[in-house]
Write a protein that binds this DNA or RNA. Structure first.
Lengths: 349, 349
DNA sequence: TGGCTGAGTTGAATCCTTTCACTGCCTGGA
DNA sequence: TCCAGGCAGTGAAAGGATTCAACTCAGCCA
């Protein structure tokens, strides 16, 4: 039942502890006949290395953790997959922790990860206020890379996407199609991303179409249900008072708005054009394929992981970097009825 | 930089090692003044327990792992969240590993989890052929619970949903609405779930509507794209030769079919009724809300985790169980135009 | 033959926590 | 006054892998 340990392997193979360890970690220094004898013993006894002992000695584990706000949000699963690729090919292991937008759970995870002396941490923290907890981790020598929060903090790296540019892209596209009454649906505005995307849209309108108006509809959250609610409210207005275009802070909201409008017989894009944000795979799969501002989700994860590995390698010489990606607009039917279903690139992975 | 250890805490507080350990693990046996002194020292020195040493001593970690086929499939994220609840409230920690439908990655994860002596494992394995690897884990004393694969194996528990019953539900619903030409879209048929769902549908037709016909359209995978392809093929047929209803092996396929049919001007449900499987949240959020066979996804995860904890607790006395849940049909607009948008229960979590 | 080299191997020390048999001390009862 | 018993606290041992200085030995040259 209990696995054999290195000592039993050594005895069985008729060598010392050190030799077994060498076979495991530096096989080239062991004579090939000895090596084979040890490998046979390992196989025979079903020996499995005890990682706890190994880590205890090494002072550090080889696993990297990613803490996300919501595993069930397709945006994050794509970020995870990107990080996975990099960690995997470096021979490490990525574990995923889900804070579920709950500060207590985030804390619990951070505590346990710190006790485990993880090699490093990728995290999209709950809020900017939680940076002290992260500082403590960093002070204990655990590198942290922020994902999707530009921070400019001097003691950690970060990767993010330029949300202001994203807001611009969406707004410019809509005014380019002649829309002058645009509604921004998103909330709460206390979330930096939500605010930044709106700010970008506002700026674009000011520059490109001074006559155009951007109305804000603040939602309680970023879910499909919140989007449906927004659509209901919008449909309740007299026809003349409705915007001709809606820009949503993320795709879940946009899908909700789409569904709500359809119920009320308001056609997308003929009556109301619609643009979402994130370009999750389900955006392209909606019955009216959704135009969306694409974030390089997997690239975000990959880059974050690379920065982390870099820091782990370079140690104190490491210079922290803040990488900001540019978003990209993907136009589909929901904001341009001339687009066929094939419009837009295939979803990024 | 490097954290203080228990010895330094002991010296700082003027007590012995054992006392510090007692404060940490059995605070009630320590006199309150001493306890406070130790806690102060811990705080002062920023002491963080070293989990490796702890595990080494204990011989076992307290983390539980869940290995899923695809983190980006909403079905699995819901299973994860269910498991998370249970593990969390038991004071453990759940880590998520993604095999990405790749046998090598699955192996790597299993190897590392075994080295880490995890307390237990929830897994939806790649295929039935991989059970030997799991047997090895079990032989080494790591309990394994299969998720979503009924197995009847005598040395492990499993949780699953009755796919034959699910197929029946869908088919009975459709024949109940007068459909006699039904198409089953799903594949590859080598996946047991895909085959079982079809078998259930076939059985239901034989009993309830001997005149009805079930045609099978085998897809290469279970993706949105595959569903779209199926819809294209279907639309290419002369109108009289099309089925009047389509039953898909999962919701991603169904969303693809829905999208494809819409493009070709085929109305859902008026021209073709549509039923999916899994009832992922996006099913209810589709522009034509999708009827679907709901699996108790979160319950699946919860139960799996409970069985695992039970086994970890009971040890050898544990009797392995195989829990099979019954699926439930959720009727929405896609198969019944009389349903409003509010039809169907709110999505299960 | 003696000395030297280098490849191969050894085993004690180390990492940190938990456990448990044990010591001291104190109190209450005889 | 003595003893039993309970409470606090102690410290050595154990858990398993890794590291590294030290050692062995065969081979080679002078």
């Amino acid at each position: 039942m209990a696995s054999a340990n290195i000592k039993e392997v050594a005895r069985y193979a008729g060598v010392s502890l050190g030799t077994v360890s060498n076979v495991l970690n530096r096989p080239e220094v062991v004579a090939s006949t000895t090596r084979q004898r040890v490998l046979d013993a390992i196989h025979k006894l079903g020996y499995v290395r005890n990682d706890s002992a190994r880590q205890l000695r090494a002072g550090r584990s080889r696993t990297i953790a990613i803490v996300v706000l919501d595993v069930s949000n397709p945006f994050f699963t794509d970020v995870i997959q990107g990080a996975e690729q990099v960690v995997e090919s470096s021979g490490g292991m990525l574990v995923v922790c889900n804070s579920g937008e709950n500060a207590r759970r985030e804390d619990r995870h951070l505590d346990m990860l710190e006790e485990q002396r993880v090699q490093g941490l990728l995290i999209t923290p709950m809020s900017d206020g939680r940076h002290e907890r992260l500082d403590a981790l960093i002070a204990h020598g655990i590198p942290v890379v922020l994902v999707d929060r530009g921070s400019g903090h001097p003691n950690r790296c970060s990767v993010a996407v330029d949300d202001i540019a994203g807001g611009r892209l969406a707004a410019e596209h809509l005014v380019g199609h002649g829309h002058e009454r645009i509604m921004y649906v998103g909330g709460p505005l206390s979330i930096r991303q939500v605010a930044d995307r709106r700010a970008g849209a506002t700026a674009a309108l000011a520059e490109r179409a001074p006559r155009a108006r951007l109305e804000t509809y603040e939602t309680a959250g970023l879910s499909v249900a919140a989007g449906r609610q927004a659509a209901d409210d919008l449909a309740a207005r007299p026809e003349g008072e409705r915007p001709t275009a809606v820009f949503c802070a993320n795709d879940l909201l946009a899908l909700g708005v789409l569904q709500g409008l359809t119920v009320h017989g308001i056609r997308v894009p003929e009556d109301v054009a619609l643009v979402g944000y994130d370009d999750i795979d389900f955006a392209a799969a909606a019955a009216i394929p959704l135009s969306s501002v694409r974030q390089p989700r997997a690239l975000l994860g990959r880059t974050a992981a690379e920065l982390l590995l870099e820091e782990a390698l370079e140690g104190d010489r490491h210079g922290h970097r803040h990488v900001v990606f540019q978003p990209e607009l993907v136009v589909r039917t929901s904001s341009d009825h001339r687009r066929g279903l094939v419009a837009g690139h295939p979803p990024a992975r």
